[in-house]
Nucleic acid binder design. Structure first.
Lengths: 243, 243
DNA sequence: CTGGATATTATGTACAAACATATAAACATA
DNA sequence: TATGTTTATATGTTTGTACATAATATCCAG
């Protein structure tokens, strides 16, 4: 990856700067909370104007990766693991953007009969088997989320796919299915024995449950997803605006 | 609402322009798909520079309200008008819509010194007292949520208001403050003794915590709200769409 | 009448230069 | 010691200017 800006490169300078910054802030030095060099200095360092640099910075600030404070400086935003409904990033993309490397602890693929909720959501017969994908994921230190996904037969997944690739990438590129609409329900509960064991905590500890109903462009159901998050490492964020 | 830009107004010009544009594009003329005036012309019309105008336009483009096309023009995005404002119901309105009658179990109003989070969010000194409103609310059978709200001094609340009225009604009608933007963080935790007692459950039981940061039209902070919900009676739902 | 060169139009990119304002540290005063 | 005051620093705001590039409209030759 390039570590400096190339004025000959046809890629716009502010995009180059943006990419460069994305890498820069993954450095533990900055991810640890240290301020970036100030704008004037950084602009000089990259040999671009302050305006162009700010253009790049703005984008990262908008994405919530950086925070700025007038008179103080710019630094990497608190790397609290969170979910931003607005941007529609995949789990992996979002975590990577924050410099968090996701590790897969477990991965199971099976074919199962749908329970009532799922059969209803998919509008299929309860005797028709669906693909079930279970994943235990987290950081190097340990898992923090247990995912269960069910896929509508219409999608055409075989179960032989490489689920280490980003899910929505597989769906889009290999199955021409674009996830367009998602309805989510977030609730709290205490961990039962099964989930507690997976997430390496005591039964009874609070967990955050996220149910996700995913639809394609035609608003047809394609995925039902359950996520069980350790309460101590996940915050769900929402931004809403009225006009 | 102002229909032109006031260079005397301390509110930054690009924010004024942004607000103005938000109104402008509600006009059926533009919402119907007509192109806005071109940037150079519009800048002249508003008596601001093209850069400043673009700053405002960029924000709306980020939000997905406008789409631009090089060499062609800028217009209101196709699907932008649809579902956005859906979320903005007051707690009481929302519950009433579901046929749930809300009972106030407790209601306390006090003036307190803000902690660091609040002082930071409000951008005020930690020595400046703010109004704190605590409410225990629920159904006839029992409470299910404990709310704590802090209000920015700018709003002008005295503490003598009738808080049995809907909050946003008070703010709009009596204090000319319109809550326009809200950022929320949802997390899970187990109830401490205080909250457990309020919500009539055992300490250690899971609860859902909702932090809410509320802003007015000028994106100035006006309220910080904490909601502690019984996990067995509350689910948070979100709908998001990508275009 | 059609295809291709050309001009026009509007957004995209980039830089330079001031001045405004919030923050924090250094300093001075009561 | 406590409280202002100044100063250095960094981001925030605003303007002006110039040229690049994509999309569209126009015109001209064959």
């Amino acid at each position: 990856m390039n570590l400096s800006i190339d004025h000959k490169n046809p890629l716009p300078l502010h995009i180059q700067a943006e990419n460069l910054l994305r890498n820069m802030i993954k450095d533990p030095q900055y991810a640890g909370g240290k301020f970036l060099p100030n704008e004037v200095q950084l602009a000089k360092q990259l040999a671009i104007s302050r305006s162009t640099l700010r253009h790049a910075l703005n984008k990262l600030v908008y994405e919530g990766l950086l925070t700025r404070k007038k008179g103080v400086g710019t630094k990497v935003a608190e790397a609290a693991i969170s979910s931003k409904s607005k941007n529609w990033l995949s789990f992996t993309q979002e975590m990577t953007a924050r410099g968090i490397i996701i590790k897969n602890f477990e991965l199971h693929v099976t074919w199962v009969l749908p329970d009532e909720t799922i059969a209803n959501f998919f509008e299929i017969s309860p005797t028709k088997k669906v693909l079930k994908l279970e994943r235990l994921r987290g950081k190097a230190e340990g898992p923090f989320v247990y995912f269960i996904s069910y896929f509508h037969p219409r999608v055409g997944l075989t179960g032989e796919e490489d689920f280490k690739r980003p899910l929505y990438d597989i769906l889009e590129k290999d199955y021409m299915t674009v996830a367009t609409l998602s309805k989510e329900e977030i609730s709290a509960r205490s961990a039962d024995k099964f989930i507690a064991a997976k997430l390496e905590l005591e039964p009874g500890h609070p967990i955050l449950v996220r149910k996700r109903f995913v639809y394609d462009q035609g608003e047809r159901p394609i995925e039902y997803n359950l996520g069980y998050y350790r309460a101590d490492s996940f915050v769900y964020t929402v931004e809403s605006r009225r006009e």
